[in-house]
């Protein structure tokens, strides 16, 4: 049977990665990760170690639900009905979604900054990139956008 520390070393990256995908900030992901390992320590004697890291992943998922339940900003989406716009999206939106030269991360940076109005620091926090990386991705994406516009009258 492995010690707690062995298990921590083996699974911490996977648990953190999963936590990071569930919550908006790295700090909260760290909180969820340490809570999961604390729960593991408390239950170490009774846990079948072959169930790891699935057991830890489930703890993280449950803790993430608690985190979202406590969040107040997101509560405003509870009451609103779904509103799917019936009109065709503008060509710019089609370009954003379909341009093959944009890698997914470029696309996300573009969307967050120019459509969702985030600062570079906010984009960096949301994506996990550094601000310098965000700046680089935006520059590249803007150059493609400029080319698309200059290459044709419409995007």
């Amino acid at each position: 049977m492995d010690t707690f520390e062995d298990l921590y070393r083996r699974h911490v990256q996977a648990v953190f990665r999963f936590a990071r995908s569930l919550v908006g900030s790295r700090e909260t992901a760290e909180d969820l990760t340490s809570e999961a390992f604390l729960a593991l320590h408390r239950n170490l004697a009774s846990i079948d170690q072959s169930q790891l890291p699935g057991w830890l992943i489930t703890v993280v998922r449950n803790r993430a639900r608690d985190h979202w339940r406590r969040s107040t900003v997101e509560q405003r989406y509870v009451q609103q009905a779904s509103e799917t716009p019936a009109v065709e999206p503008p060509q710019l939106e089609r370009w954003l979604l379909e341009c093959r030269d944009l890698k997914p991360v470029h696309r996300t940076c573009l969307m967050l900054r120019y459509v969702h109005g985030m600062t570079r620091a906010e984009v960096a926090a949301a994506t996990g990139l550094s601000e310098i990386q965000v700046k680089g991705h935006l520059q590249y994406a803007l150059s493609l956008l400029r080319k698309a516009y200059l290459g044709a009258d419409t995007v």
Binding site: S21, L22, R61, W68, R69, Y77, T108
Partner: peptide, 21 residues
């Protein structure tokens, strides 16, 4: 917000937040 969408996709939202929208 994007983080909420990502949590929804990973089935990590409480029922009351996992709305149709």
């Amino acid at each position: 917000p994007a983080a909420l969408l990502r949590a929804a996709q990973a089935d990590a939202l409480p029922e009351e937040l996992n709305t149709e929208k």
